[in-house]
Each structure stands twice: as structure tokens, then as C-alpha cells.
Design a protein around this nucleic acid. Structure first.
Length: 108
DNA sequence: CCGATGACTTGAA
DNA sequence: CTTCAAGCCATCG
């Protein structure tokens, strides 16, 4: 990885279990950047270049909106990928986000 | 160092 | 509902 920051972010994202999602803000705080949600998103955009499979489709913004959908519009949309995991989405937004949200401290 | 950029966030109009 | 503004921070030229 280009930096420990990235590896930290990727490690966390890779730990997101199936049928679960996480927000940029949570990840940002976990890696130490209190308000660096943008940096997380920026790192995610790079994740596609890495060999490691990063389930970036499980990372959404604080409202559960698929702000990254425009990066997955190549064939499978982000919504389709999430629905494959049983997550219901409507108008580009995850329904019952509270039920799907996940973070390392709240182990299932 | 500076300015621009971005898969963010919050709040206000 | 939409749009804008300010704040936030790593990266790039």
C-alpha cells in the first residue's frame, strides 16, 4: 500500500461482513482522521486499482445513500451488488440503514 | 507553500 | 425536493 492510512482503511472495509454496510465517517474516525470522510472516499476510488478485493460497494455516506454508484455503473450498479446481499434499496438509498450499518465495535 | 479536486457532512435557504 | 456554503483532510501539479 502507498501508506499505512490506506492499509488501515482497506483492512476495515474488507472486514465488513456480507449484508452489512459502513459509512465513510465511521471508517475515517477508525483510521484516525476525525473528519476525513472525503479521504476515505478518495482512498476507495483508488481501491479499484489494487489487487485486493475491496467491497467498496458496502461503503456509503451517513444517510445510506449510494453516493458512489456512479463509480460502479460499469455493468453492475452498486445497488445491484448490495441487493445481491439482501439489502433493500430505493431511489439510490438503503432502506433501514440502521439495521445494516456495521462497525468493528458493534460486532453483529 | 498554494490551489484544485474528491465515492463526505452538516446545516441553512 | 434542490442548491449552496463552509468545514474537513490526503493527494497531486
Amino acid at each position: 500500500m502507498t501508506s499505512k492510512l490506506y492499509s488501515d482503511i482497506y483492512e476495515i472495509v474488507k472486514q465488513i461482513p456480507r449484508s452489512r454496510v459502513c459509512t465513510y465517517g465511521i471508517i475515517a474516525k477508525l483510521v484516525g482522521i476525525n473528519n476525513g470522510a472525503r479521504v476515505v472516499g478518495w482512498a476507495m476510488s483508488k481501491s479499484a486499482l489494487y489487487k485486493d478485493k475491496i467491497p467498496a460497494h458496502r461503503v456509503v455516506n451517513s444517510k445510506g445513500i449510494l453516493t458512489a454508484s456512479h463509480k460502479f455503473d460499469k455493468g453492475m450498479t452498486m445497488q445491484e451488488l448490495l441487493e445481491e446481499e439482501g439489502i433493500k434499496i430505493e431511489n439510490n438509498q438503503i432502506l433501514n440503514i440502521n439495521e445494516y450499518i456495521w462497525d468493528p465495535f458493534q460486532i453483529d
